[in-house]
């Protein structure tokens, strides 16, 4: 489904991605983990074409994506920091994106799920961080696309919204979609993900099942396993 080959990205002198090879098969939930600055967001942005890699190619459905744009019809993306045009009202934002994507969307159900009705006529600049994240989630899940990429989906969410998010993720997976999620909350990863990809200094340190990582690091749970890797890295 998604194949990343020899991906390299430098920002100035700093190498952020350094030869990433990754195969993501159709269906299932992939968690991309790694410490801050390990290149998770850059990898996602490369897949989306927001950032241009220096080397390597990305293929989606066996087609190289460099310079293309139509393939993004197959992707729903939740950005890490939700920046919206401040002058817009929530309702206008939804209808604008639907208009641009030329697709009806299922925003009504999602608005209900996240209790956003009271905010529909408010300007985005007046919303709290958590509400903005809910708007962000609605925008992401609004369309029926085979690939869903979530960059830190849990940030700012209250427990109830978190539950609903998990529910949504499970539904999408059940519908046979491919989900790529980055997060810092290990509990969330353990609960939802099928496979994890661990990035360290722009390289893939580990790619496989949760169980496999636990065995590799000889730790009882994911949190400790990650901590172990980080520590090793620190004293190496």
């Amino acid at each position: 489904m998604i194949r990343v080959s020899g991906l390299e990205k430098k920002f100035g002198r700093q190498t952020v991605l350094n030869g990433i090879e990754l195969d993501i098969a159709e269906g299932g939930i992939y968690a991309i983990l790694g410490p801050n600055g390990s290149g998770k967001t850059t990898l996602i942005k490369c897949i989306l074409g927001l950032t241009h890699p220096n080397e390597g190619e990305i293929f989606i459905h066996d087609k190289a994506v460099r310079g293309k744009w139509k393939y993004r019809n197959a992707i729903n993306y939740l950005p890490q920091i939700a920046n919206f045009p401040e002058n817009l009202r929530v309702k206008e934002l939804f209808s604008m994106i639907k208009d641009i994507r030329q697709s009806p969307g299922r925003d009504e159900r999602l608005i209900e799920i996240f209790n956003l009705e009271p905010y529909l006529n408010k300007k985005l600049s007046t919303l709290s961080g958590g509400t903005v994240q809910k708007v962000n989630l609605v925008l992401t899940f609004m369309f029926d696309s085979p690939i869903v990429i979530l960059d830190e989906p849990t940030s700012g969410l209250d427990p109830l919204a978190m539950l609903k998010l998990k529910e949504l993720i499970r539904q999408e997976r059940a519908a046979g979609k491919t989900l790529i999620i980055t997060t810092h909350i290990m509990q969330f990863v353990e609960e939802v993900s099928d496979r994890i990809v661990y990035l360290l200094e722009g390289k893939i340190y580990y790619s496989g099942s949760v169980q496999g990582l636990l065995e590799k690091t000889q730790q009882q749970d994911l949190e400790h396993a990650i901590a172990h890797i980080t520590k090793q890295e620190l004293y190496a």
């Binding site: 744009w69 920046n83 045009p85 994106i97």
Partner: peptide, 9 residues
């Protein structure tokens, strides 16, 4: 940024 993630040239 919002638009860049959308299927738009």
């Amino acid at each position: 940024e919002l638009l860049l993630a959308q299927p738009v040239r």
